[in-house]
Design a binder for these strands. Structure first.
Lengths: 229, 229
DNA sequence: GCATATTTGTCCGTATGTATA
DNA sequence: CTATACATACGGACAAATATG
């Protein structure tokens, strides 16, 4: 490869990877929120966050707008932005979305789909994490499993919707902070669902997923109502 | 009603209806874009739009961020924002989303659902508009029909996703501007689908919708490829 | 290919309005 | 009720990137 080629590639990379400060700030804050560093209800002051990250208030406000649109921050006029606090009804709605999208993504399968590898990887990774009793990692891989299932639909937009849904759900899990209770029981179910997908039996996968999500929703909503009460 | 009551109600209204300038600006621009006033590809200059609307650049940029997140504007670093120009692949993806969501929304119905009235209203309104040969209105009511179908799922978030999908689709229709061709053939199908929904036959509605969307997609994508070529 | 003009990206200062102790 | 703190919104400034002649 000549230096000219490298230069062109570098230029391409610059074109693709370039992001504004506002987007980079949004990325940082999104990470902090979904990893639980900022708890739901926390107020994010323009002044303190801005000086901490070394960006102006204008730039920071652009980032806040983005995260508000993703429902990770709630914007209260003249009061500031807060890490979103989901209601039990929100959790119900999130599971409504999950049932609709996840089940639909696998339902029409009739053959082992491309992309099933990522599903399998998530399952084995979750099992390995469970062996280490690393329940946080189990939760992470569990979410990755469902993300991979939805990716079988092959739609960028559906993927993004699912991304947002799972990001919101993380806010719920952080409130309760008992990953073993909410993720460990589902490892076996994930393996079972993976098998039906591998066999190309979309109908069976649909039914298993629905049962999974109904159960998980009941468990989660009950615990969440108690936690936020 | 006493003046005190009016004052309290006015205060309540202020609490509910209050929006920031950036959001109001975004609302205005969103309307202009979806109604076709700004054509896809048009650059929205910070200076001209800002002075036209009488807002500062900072405020306008917050509005731009919101609309960029909704995929109505595309943000190109150091070049500005442009009304989104969808590719044929985007249209395919949009129909992927529509098939997944719309079909799933009606599939599990087993009884005439609450909210079927709004569906019926859209159908009759479209028929009336067709009688007047007002094909633009037919298109509007057609989109409202599908929005009402999705609303049967009873999820705020699903409704919002569908909203965004249809807003993007409007960008496609504006490029071609032949509403009769793309909406008139589907009026009868809408009536048929309404009937199956009224009978609580979700399975039949699912199948009809899928056929509808497959046909509409083929028709639209072919025409769109030709139009943007 | 170069020099210039235009536009965006980002920051800062400030005036005003709103919420809250 | 007042005072304080903060968000809102504006306008100006300058650097950096891009478009134009």
């Amino acid at each position: 490869m000549t230096t000219g080629d490298q230069g062109e590639l570098a230029a391409d990379r610059a074109l693709l990877g370039r992001t504004s400060t506002a987007e980079r700030v949004a990325d940082i804050l999104r990470g902090r929120i979904t990893e639980g560093f900022f708890s739901p209800g926390t107020r994010l002051s323009e002044d303190s966050i801005g000086t901490a990250l070394g960006v102006s208030r204008n730039t920071l406000r652009e980032a806040f707008r983005l995260l508000g649109h993703e429902r990770l921050l709630s914007h209260e006029l003249n009061r500031g932005v807060f890490v979103r606090k989901l209601s039990a009804e929100d959790v119900v709605d999130l599971y409504r979305v999950r049932k609709l999208i996840e089940c639909a993504a696998v339902r029409s399968l009739t053959a082992p789909p491309a992309g099933v590898d990522r599903v399998a990887q998530a399952v084995t990774a979750a099992e390995a994490a469970a062996g280490r009793e690393d329940w946080v990692a189990v939760g992470t891989e569990n979410l990755r499993f469902h993300q991979a299932l939805v990716a079988l639909a092959g739609s960028r937009r559906i993927d993004e919707v699912m991304n947002g849904v799972l990001a919101e759900l993380r806010l719920v899990f952080h409130v309760m902070a008992d990953p073993k209770r909410f993720h460990e029981p589902y490892i076996q179910r994930n393996r079972l669902i993976l098998n039906t997908v591998r066999e190309g039996d979309g109908h069976a996968a649909d039914k298993l997923l629905l049962a999974y999500l109904d159960l998980a929703e009941r468990e989660l909503v009950d615990a969440y109502r108690a936690a936020v009460a």
